[in-house]
Amino acid sequence: MRRAALAFALALAMAAPAAAQVRDVRTSGPKPFGVLLGDVFTLRTSFVADAPYTLDPASLPKTGALTYAIDLRRLDVTESAAPGGGVRYEITAEYQTFYSALETRTETVPQMSLSVVDGKGGRKEFKAGGWAYITSPLRPLITTSGETQYDLRPDAVPPRISLRPAQTAALWSAGAALLALLLLAWSRAWPPFHTRPSRPFTRAARVVAKRAPTGEAGWREALIDLHRAFDATAGKRLLGDDLGAFLAQRPAFARHEAGIRAFFDASRRVFFGGAAPAATGLSADALTRLARDLAGAERAS
């Protein structure tokens, strides 16, 4: 049947190419037997429409109940260029059968009435996609095992709502939050990481903030603390003359160059020039701010 149709289409195409708008119509399906009530099967129908003809999408069947026995569940159309010019259409149709057979018998999927249009009012209708299959009953006609005909399968019981996925997700995010907190504490040298050797400025900033506002002696001690932090960062005793090399090595601190130079200048005038702290122009506030900025720069280096 299919071969005959193919041969006919081929003959038509050869004899009068201008007259053939639709050719190479094929339908393929799954095994055409052993189909039971409720089964879903897919039929693939393909054909070639010669230019300028194209498939009229309005002629495609609508999903839903097709006949008493068969539902059309889904319909997909794909287009591709055909080798001999024109467009090859492939229609994938998913059917479901609702026929409760009493005996094994043949059922048919009705053909689709499709049409192609040329955009100038020309229209050609054709049929495609028919299929026949053998459907079988689920149960015998007469029960012999003694049960009544009315025995139903039991109700479906609702699934229990499980807390497990939500619990797992909450646990994972709690773990992630803890890890992130630890990372933050480590990065800022918070306890228990406050004695981290690679965070001398962070440590110094804490001490400076405490000591600098407590008068002249505290201010001097804070100055020394900040010096020790510079020493620890540079890995040697850092003097004002070495600042250029130090900043070139650690670009993260370069942003605060003016503050650092002011600090070294004040330090020299107090410790070597014998000037009073108030005369240096570096207030306790400015000192604290500089220490905090340097701690921030240290984290970024």
Partner: peptide, 19 residues
């Protein structure tokens, strides 16, 4: 580190609310 902590806290809030 602070951005990571913020994201983790948001995730913790969402999953906790869902739980």
């Amino acid at each position: 580190p602070p951005v990571l902590l913020l994201a983790a806290l948001v995730a913790l809030g969402v999953t906790g609310w869902r739980l």
